[in-house]
Protein backbone atom coordinates (compact mmCIF):
# COMPACT_ATOMS: atom_id res chain seq x y z
CA UNK A 1 0.00 0.00 0.00
CA UNK A 2 2.60 2.44 1.11
CA UNK A 3 4.77 1.60 -1.79
CA UNK A 4 1.95 2.19 -4.18
CA UNK A 5 1.18 5.55 -2.73
CA UNK A 6 4.78 6.63 -2.70
CA UNK A 7 5.06 5.52 -6.25
CA UNK A 8 2.05 7.54 -7.11
CA UNK A 9 3.32 10.59 -5.32
CA UNK A 10 6.64 10.36 -7.05
CA UNK A 11 4.97 10.15 -10.37
CA UNK A 12 2.49 12.86 -9.69
CA UNK A 13 5.31 15.06 -8.55
CA UNK A 14 7.16 14.59 -11.75
CA UNK A 15 4.05 15.19 -13.74
CA UNK A 16 3.47 18.35 -11.83
CA UNK A 17 6.76 19.75 -12.99
CA UNK A 18 5.78 19.40 -16.56
CA UNK A 19 2.16 20.41 -16.10
CA UNK A 20 1.35 17.65 -18.52
CA UNK A 21 0.29 14.06 -18.32
CA UNK A 22 3.06 12.65 -20.42
CA UNK A 23 5.45 11.90 -17.59
CA UNK A 24 2.69 10.36 -15.52
CA UNK A 25 1.95 7.84 -18.17
CA UNK A 26 5.55 7.13 -19.04
CA UNK A 27 6.64 6.52 -15.52
CA UNK A 28 3.58 4.52 -14.80
CA UNK A 29 4.20 2.42 -17.84
CA UNK A 30 7.66 1.54 -16.62
CA UNK A 31 6.52 0.71 -13.14
CA UNK A 32 3.18 -0.73 -13.94
CA UNK A 33 3.96 -4.01 -12.17
CA UNK A 34 4.36 -2.17 -8.90
CA UNK A 35 1.14 -0.41 -9.37
CA UNK A 36 -1.03 -3.33 -10.33
CA UNK A 37 0.00 -5.32 -7.27
CA UNK A 38 -2.42 -3.17 -5.34
CA UNK A 39 -5.92 -4.44 -4.82
CA UNK A 40 -8.38 -2.59 -7.00
CA UNK A 41 -9.65 0.47 -5.16
CA UNK A 42 -12.40 2.90 -5.84
CA UNK A 43 -11.18 5.63 -8.16
CA UNK A 44 -10.52 8.82 -6.26
CA UNK A 45 -9.73 12.42 -6.88
CA UNK A 46 -7.03 14.39 -5.17
CA UNK A 47 -4.75 17.35 -5.30
CA UNK A 48 -1.39 17.01 -6.92
CA UNK A 49 1.38 16.43 -4.38
CA UNK A 50 3.11 19.69 -5.24
CA UNK A 51 -0.05 21.74 -5.15
CA UNK A 52 0.32 24.88 -3.09
CA UNK A 53 -2.67 25.63 -0.95
CA UNK A 54 -3.73 28.47 1.29
CA UNK A 55 -6.99 29.51 2.87
CA UNK A 56 -6.60 32.88 1.17
CA UNK A 57 -4.09 33.65 -1.50
CA UNK A 58 -2.97 37.25 -1.63
CA UNK A 59 -0.66 39.49 -3.58
CA UNK A 60 1.37 42.55 -2.76
CA UNK A 61 2.41 44.91 -5.53
CA UNK A 62 5.27 47.18 -4.61
CA UNK A 63 4.81 50.06 -7.00
CA UNK A 64 7.94 51.78 -5.70
CA UNK A 65 9.90 49.29 -7.74
CA UNK A 66 8.10 50.23 -10.96
CA UNK A 67 10.21 52.60 -12.96
CA UNK A 68 8.59 52.52 -16.34
CA UNK A 69 6.12 50.82 -18.58
CA UNK A 70 8.69 48.16 -19.40
CA UNK A 71 8.53 46.91 -15.80
CA UNK A 72 4.82 46.19 -16.05
CA UNK A 73 4.68 44.93 -19.62
CA UNK A 74 6.28 41.52 -18.93
CA UNK A 75 3.67 40.69 -16.29
CA UNK A 76 0.84 41.40 -18.70
CA UNK A 77 2.56 39.57 -21.50
CA UNK A 78 3.30 36.50 -19.40
CA UNK A 79 -0.28 36.28 -18.20
CA UNK A 80 -2.04 36.93 -21.47
CA UNK A 81 0.19 34.55 -23.35
CA UNK A 82 -0.20 31.49 -21.19
CA UNK A 83 -3.92 32.06 -20.68
CA UNK A 84 -4.76 32.55 -24.34
CA UNK A 85 -6.14 36.02 -23.78
CA UNK A 86 -7.13 37.35 -27.19
CA UNK A 87 -6.21 40.71 -28.67
CA UNK A 88 -9.59 41.98 -29.81
CA UNK A 89 -9.46 44.50 -32.66
CA UNK A 90 -12.13 46.79 -31.18
CA UNK A 91 -11.26 48.34 -27.83
CA UNK A 92 -14.92 48.03 -26.83
CA UNK A 93 -14.56 44.25 -26.86
CA UNK A 94 -11.20 44.22 -25.16
CA UNK A 95 -10.33 41.25 -22.97
CA UNK A 96 -7.79 41.71 -20.22
CA UNK A 97 -6.87 39.79 -17.11
CA UNK A 98 -4.19 42.17 -15.94
CA UNK A 99 -3.42 45.58 -17.35
CA UNK A 100 -1.64 48.79 -16.65
CA UNK A 101 -3.45 51.92 -15.58
CA UNK A 102 -2.77 55.24 -13.94
CA UNK A 103 -3.12 55.82 -10.22
CA UNK A 104 -6.17 58.04 -10.70
CA UNK A 105 -7.98 55.16 -12.42
CA UNK A 106 -6.85 52.42 -10.08
CA UNK A 107 -7.61 54.52 -7.01
CA UNK A 108 -10.14 57.09 -8.21
CA UNK A 109 -11.12 58.09 -4.69
CA UNK A 110 -7.52 58.68 -3.57
CA UNK A 111 -6.19 60.67 -6.49
CA UNK A 112 -6.13 64.41 -6.22
CA UNK A 113 -5.08 67.51 -8.04
CA UNK A 114 -1.77 67.76 -6.26
CA UNK A 115 0.18 64.64 -5.59
CA UNK A 116 3.61 63.16 -5.85
CA UNK A 117 4.84 63.40 -9.43
CA UNK A 118 6.05 59.83 -9.26
CA UNK A 119 2.63 58.54 -8.29
CA UNK A 120 0.82 60.80 -10.71
CA UNK A 121 2.67 59.35 -13.67
CA UNK A 122 2.88 55.86 -12.28
CA UNK A 123 1.53 53.06 -14.43
CA UNK A 124 0.52 50.27 -12.11
CA UNK A 125 -0.81 46.79 -12.76
CA UNK A 126 -4.43 46.07 -11.89
CA UNK A 127 -6.15 42.71 -11.94
CA UNK A 128 -8.94 40.81 -10.24
CA UNK A 129 -8.60 41.47 -6.51
CA UNK A 130 -9.89 38.03 -5.51
CA UNK A 131 -11.97 39.73 -2.87
CA UNK A 132 -12.77 37.91 0.32
CA UNK A 133 -16.29 39.29 0.03
CA UNK A 134 -16.75 39.42 -3.73
CA UNK A 135 -19.86 41.16 -5.10
CA UNK A 136 -19.50 39.32 -8.42
CA UNK A 137 -19.95 35.99 -6.66
CA UNK A 138 -22.91 37.34 -4.73
CA UNK A 139 -24.82 38.24 -7.88
CA UNK A 140 -24.03 35.29 -10.14
CA UNK A 141 -27.29 33.41 -10.78
CA UNK A 142 -25.65 30.06 -11.55
CA UNK A 143 -22.59 29.95 -9.27
CA UNK A 144 -20.51 30.07 -12.44
CA UNK A 145 -18.30 32.47 -10.60
CA UNK A 146 -17.47 31.41 -7.07
CA UNK A 147 -14.84 31.68 -4.40
CA UNK A 148 -12.90 28.44 -4.12
CA UNK A 149 -11.36 26.85 -1.05
CA UNK A 150 -8.18 28.88 -1.58
CA UNK A 151 -9.88 32.24 -1.68
CA UNK A 152 -9.56 32.49 -5.44
CA UNK A 153 -12.54 33.93 -7.28
CA UNK A 154 -12.89 31.43 -10.09
CA UNK A 155 -14.87 31.31 -13.31
CA UNK A 156 -16.54 28.11 -14.42
CA UNK A 157 -16.74 28.77 -18.15
CA UNK A 158 -18.78 25.61 -18.61
CA UNK A 159 -21.59 27.06 -16.57
CA UNK A 160 -21.57 30.78 -17.34
CA UNK A 161 -24.74 31.89 -19.14
CA UNK A 162 -23.28 35.25 -20.11
CA UNK A 163 -25.75 37.46 -18.22
CA UNK A 164 -22.90 39.84 -17.27
CA UNK A 165 -24.37 40.56 -13.84
CA UNK A 166 -20.88 39.99 -12.42
CA UNK A 167 -19.51 42.72 -14.69
CA UNK A 168 -22.04 45.16 -13.32
CA UNK A 169 -21.23 44.07 -9.78
CA UNK A 170 -17.43 44.22 -9.94
CA UNK A 171 -16.28 47.62 -8.63
CA UNK A 172 -12.87 47.20 -10.25
CA UNK A 173 -13.75 46.56 -13.89
CA UNK A 174 -11.81 43.32 -13.68
CA UNK A 175 -14.08 41.30 -15.89
CA UNK A 176 -14.24 40.98 -19.65
CA UNK A 177 -16.93 39.51 -21.86
CA UNK A 178 -16.39 37.51 -25.03
CA UNK A 179 -18.49 39.52 -27.44
CA UNK A 180 -17.20 37.38 -30.30
CA UNK A 181 -15.41 34.06 -30.61
CA UNK A 182 -11.98 34.86 -29.17
CA UNK A 183 -10.08 32.14 -31.02
CA UNK A 184 -9.27 34.01 -34.24
CA UNK A 185 -7.76 36.80 -32.16
CA UNK A 186 -5.33 34.72 -30.18
CA UNK A 187 -1.95 35.32 -31.71
CA UNK A 188 -0.19 32.24 -30.47
CA UNK A 189 -2.24 29.60 -28.73
CA UNK A 190 -0.87 28.00 -25.64
CA UNK A 191 -2.06 24.50 -26.31
CA UNK A 192 -1.81 23.51 -22.67
CA UNK A 193 -4.47 25.94 -21.54
CA UNK A 194 -8.02 26.16 -22.84
CA UNK A 195 -9.35 29.20 -24.66
CA UNK A 196 -12.80 30.59 -23.97
CA UNK A 197 -15.87 30.58 -26.15
CA UNK A 198 -18.01 33.53 -27.16
CA UNK A 199 -20.70 34.61 -24.75
CA UNK A 200 -18.94 33.98 -21.45
CA UNK A 201 -17.30 36.34 -18.97
CA UNK A 202 -13.64 35.82 -18.14
CA UNK A 203 -11.01 37.20 -15.80
CA UNK A 204 -7.81 36.49 -13.89
CA UNK A 205 -7.77 33.16 -12.03
CA UNK A 206 -4.71 33.90 -9.86
CA UNK A 207 -3.07 31.13 -11.94
CA UNK A 208 -4.98 28.37 -10.19
CA UNK A 209 -3.62 25.93 -12.77
CA UNK A 210 -0.04 26.82 -11.78
CA UNK A 211 -0.65 26.80 -8.04
CA UNK A 212 -1.97 23.26 -8.54
CA UNK A 213 1.50 22.19 -9.59
CA UNK A 214 3.42 24.28 -7.14
CA UNK A 215 4.20 27.33 -9.23
CA UNK A 216 3.47 30.94 -8.44
CA UNK A 217 1.32 33.02 -10.76
CA UNK A 218 2.90 33.89 -14.08
CA UNK A 219 2.76 37.64 -13.49
CA UNK A 220 4.55 37.22 -10.16
CA UNK A 221 7.28 35.17 -11.80
CA UNK A 222 7.66 37.78 -14.53
CA UNK A 223 7.48 40.75 -12.20
CA UNK A 224 11.14 40.87 -11.22
CA UNK A 225 10.29 41.21 -7.55
CA UNK A 226 7.59 43.86 -7.94
CA UNK A 227 4.89 41.38 -6.99
CA UNK A 228 4.86 39.04 -4.01
CA UNK A 229 2.44 36.20 -3.59
CA UNK A 230 1.47 34.01 -0.67
CA UNK A 231 -0.87 32.91 2.07
CA UNK A 232 -2.59 35.87 3.68
CA UNK A 233 -3.44 33.94 6.82
CA UNK A 234 0.08 32.71 7.46
CA UNK A 235 2.00 35.35 9.46
CA UNK A 236 5.31 33.99 8.15
CA UNK A 237 4.37 34.13 4.50
CA UNK A 238 6.14 36.54 2.21
CA UNK A 239 3.06 38.65 1.65
CA UNK A 240 2.31 38.90 5.33
CA UNK A 241 5.84 39.92 6.14
CA UNK A 242 5.57 42.74 3.63
CA UNK A 243 2.08 43.75 4.73
CA UNK A 244 3.07 43.68 8.38
CA UNK A 245 6.04 45.93 7.84
CA UNK A 246 4.76 48.36 5.19
CA UNK A 247 1.80 50.65 4.79
CA UNK A 248 -0.35 49.03 2.13
CA UNK A 249 -3.58 50.08 0.50
CA UNK A 250 -6.22 48.20 -1.41
CA UNK A 251 -8.55 49.39 -4.14
CA UNK A 252 -11.85 50.83 -2.91
CA UNK A 253 -11.50 49.36 0.55
CA UNK A 254 -14.51 51.38 1.65
CA UNK A 255 -16.82 49.08 -0.31
CA UNK A 256 -16.25 46.19 2.05
CA UNK A 257 -15.17 43.76 -0.64
CA UNK A 258 -11.88 43.00 1.15
CA UNK A 259 -9.59 42.76 -1.85
CA UNK A 260 -6.66 40.35 -1.61
CA UNK A 261 -4.36 42.45 -3.77
CA UNK A 262 -2.39 44.95 -1.71
CA UNK A 263 -0.47 47.92 -3.07
CA UNK A 264 2.54 49.75 -1.68
CA UNK A 265 2.57 53.17 -3.25
Amino acid sequence: MKKGRRNFLKIAGISALGLGAKPVLDVFASSEEDAVVEAPAEPRIMRGPNAMTAPQWAMVIDTRKIESHSDVEPMIEACHKIHNVPEMPDKKHEIKWIWETEFKHAFPNLAGEYMSKRVEHLGLPVLCNHCENPPCVRVCPTKATFRNSQGIVMMDYHRCIGCRFCMAACPYGSRSFNFFDPKPHIEEENKKFPTRMRGVVEKCNFCAERLAVGRKPACVEASNGIMAFGDLHDPRSEVREIIDSNYTIRRKQNLGTRPAVYYII
Binding site: C160, G162, N178
Partner: peptide, 9 residues
Protein backbone atom coordinates in the same frame (compact mmCIF):
# COMPACT_ATOMS: atom_id res chain seq x y z
CA UNK B 1 -27.60 36.28 -22.65
CA UNK B 2 -24.24 35.36 -24.10
CA UNK B 3 -25.04 31.66 -23.82
CA UNK B 4 -28.83 31.39 -24.09
CA UNK B 5 -28.66 27.61 -24.50
CA UNK B 6 -27.50 27.41 -20.91
CA UNK B 7 -30.36 29.52 -19.62
CA UNK B 8 -31.73 26.67 -17.52
CA UNK B 9 -28.55 26.70 -15.44
Amino acid sequence: LGQPMRMLN
